[in-house]
Design a protein around this nucleic acid. Structure first.
Lengths: 356, 356
DNA sequence: ATGAAAGCGCTAACAA
DNA sequence: TTGTTAGCGCTTTCAT
């Protein structure tokens, strides 16, 4: 199996095998209409010459490129996770993935890239950025499209996490710990996920009879700095909340800095819960209690759906919703409980033990 | 300016403009050989019909696709940064970027994707993963290739950061703070960056007469868990180091957990310095002192180089080295200094002051 | 089961 | 300045 430098073409293979280009094509694509002997022969030669199909040509001549495109804002941690997930889900199929990274500023891809992708890939998975108006420019493409998370006005098949339920779990958790006054750092309400999380928060406020001053909800826009600012606001309240639920982990991280900056500590003074369970959630200190999005499953679902669509099978349901899950770590704690200082946990030097 | 659903083709434009396809092509590509009137006319029509060139066809017919490919391991934070940087550097040019994400397991891209990229893009920027043997399969491509960071045995133009100098700055900083016994958590030595950082560490040990027990160097493989384990080892030493320098931020984050897990605190008990200055460095607590890689500049340099190469200009130097810079945050501190507890900074509630 | 012809949308190379 | 002729590498359609 020698790998030639300039990759060989179909016609070269055909010539060597002494068959027509068409026969070679059929053999290599597992299509009927070739005798088994010839097929074997052709495959052998192709292998031998290190033949790799030119997908550009394949695609141009109306075939499939076996490449699916992913449009995403890579600078978002959670989005990154999803892209990685799609990559590995795809690895077991015969598809490859090419990613187009949306910049954070222009939240819609240049027309050029959309057509580029359209010309080149067999299907597109779009991980929705904050503004997704550009989706309409895709909507009349003849190309299968699946979105992850829910935009405003589009009707592509979607893969979503159960944000509403997840947020409820988070609040329930805090309520179970005895918190009655919970601040909420909301996300970017252009995204359905942000809206669902906020709705869950308000519903739970009512359902559990929690404090519901309007000042308890501050927007953090899913950003670190936004979370920081929002937490600052919450801490300024005449009656401070004893717990904060941030609509995503990044804004939770910002909130954590703000709390610390204000001379308070998590979770002693304030319990903090995030959403997403991105990698940093477990890396920051104290490790963040959060709601885990099933990104791996979402990625797999997106891949399955798009592959099916490419094969001509329309998805049974327009929306596939996957469950979320609460992950309790160290940033949430029963209200008013007196405990050992967390960073001296396991210490043999100091023996700080305390009572409730 | 109406955007048609099925994007129009060159020949449609040509037909409407009543010129040959070739003239239309020339007009749209700003090539000479078209009268100004016709050019204007053609451009107007194209605009009007929402014409977008089919890059697949352009490329197939021997032209440029104006797309550059990026091969990277997206799950690495630092790599992600770089990709984002390349994206924005590219945005000011007329190129688009398509990213192929290497999985963490198979550290070399499938042959298919390499040929795919080769067939489709005008040039490739490779951000080197740990194993980069596959680069040789690219080496006889007729395609411009630039790498970021240095592999083992390839001779592509490279963009590198001055890792050696950066690591020296880090050690010097710790030495200036009075530390004489500094542990080093090394990186993945398959990468030149890791080797350079380690070399700097050893050189500085000698130069500054620091403690140089071999046990002070433990491999952390650039991974969070690796850093955790490595720090555990360092803490077990009969004479514990008073400071640790980790070869990257992620392993530093791991080390921080390990230190805390051992009942010690950063920076009171142990000063910690990382490398890279990825986003988490400033998000973790305490904020990490680290060496900043000039990722934005590196990205820009890579883009400039590849664009020049595509234009047929060979880069003047084989290696472009960019300077690194020490960023002092809260994880490093003069040895044995008596200070206020960091988390109660600014607190009005508790007045905790401690002694070494 | 096999092959020939035509063409995807475009651009080089050549001609007029 | 303009147009014509090929052809990139492949797949479709329509023969045989």
């Amino acid at each position: 199996m020698s790998t030639n430098k300039r990759s060989s073409t179909l016609s070269e293979i055909a010539k060597i095998a002494e068959v027509s280009v068409m026969t070679a094509s059929r053999a290599l694509n597992n299509q009927p209409g070739v005798s088994e002997e010839k097929r074997a022969e052709i495959l052998r030669i192709a292998e031998d010459m290190g033949y790799v199909a030119n997908r550009v040509a394949q695609r141009l001549s109306g075939g499939k490129s076996r490449v699916i495109g992913v449009i995403a804002q890579l600078h978002t941690l959670y989005t990154s996770d999803l892209v990685l997930g799609i990559g590995s889900a795809l690895r077991s199929s015969k598809y490859e993935m090419l990613v187009y990274s949306l910049s954070d500023t222009d939240s819609q891809p240049p027309q050029a890239i959309v057509s580029l992708l359209r010309q080149f890939v067999d299907g597109i998975i779009v991980i929705l950025p904050f503004q997704s108006d550009y989706l309409i420019s895709l909507s009349d493409a003849d190309l299968p499209i699946v979105t992850i998370d829910e935009g405003s006005h589009d009707n592509f098949p979607k893969i979503v996490a159960d944000n509403y339920q997840g947020a409820r779990l988070a609040i329930q958790h805090l309520a179970d710990l005895g918190h009655r006054r919970i601040g909420f750092i909301s996300g970017n309400n252009q995204l359905a996920s942000a809206r669902d999380r906020e709705r869950a928060f308000r519903d739970m406020q009512a359902q559990l009879g929690l404090d519901d001053d309007p000042e308890l909800v501050v927007n953090g826009n899913f950003l670190q700095q936004g979370g920081f600012n929002a937490a600052k606001e919450l801490l300024k309240l005449p009656v401070r909340p004893t717990a904060i639920f941030a609509a995503n982990d990044i804004s939770a991280a910002g909130a954590m800095s703000a709390i610390r900056d204000g001379g308070l500590t998590v979770p002693e003074d304030i319990s903090l819960v995030g959403f997403d369970d991105v990698a940093v959630a477990s890396q920051i200190y104290p490790a963040l209690t959060t709601v885990k999005q099933p990104s791996a499953q979402m990625a797999r679902a997106a891949v399955n759906t798009i592959v099916a669509m490419i094969a001509g099978i329309e998805p049974a349901t327009a929306v596939i919703m996957l469950p979320t899950e609460l992950v309790v770590r160290d940033s949430s704690r029963p209200m008013g409980e007196v405990v050992e200082m967390p960073f001296s946990k396991g210490s043999r030097k100091k023996s700080t033990t305390t009572v409730a």
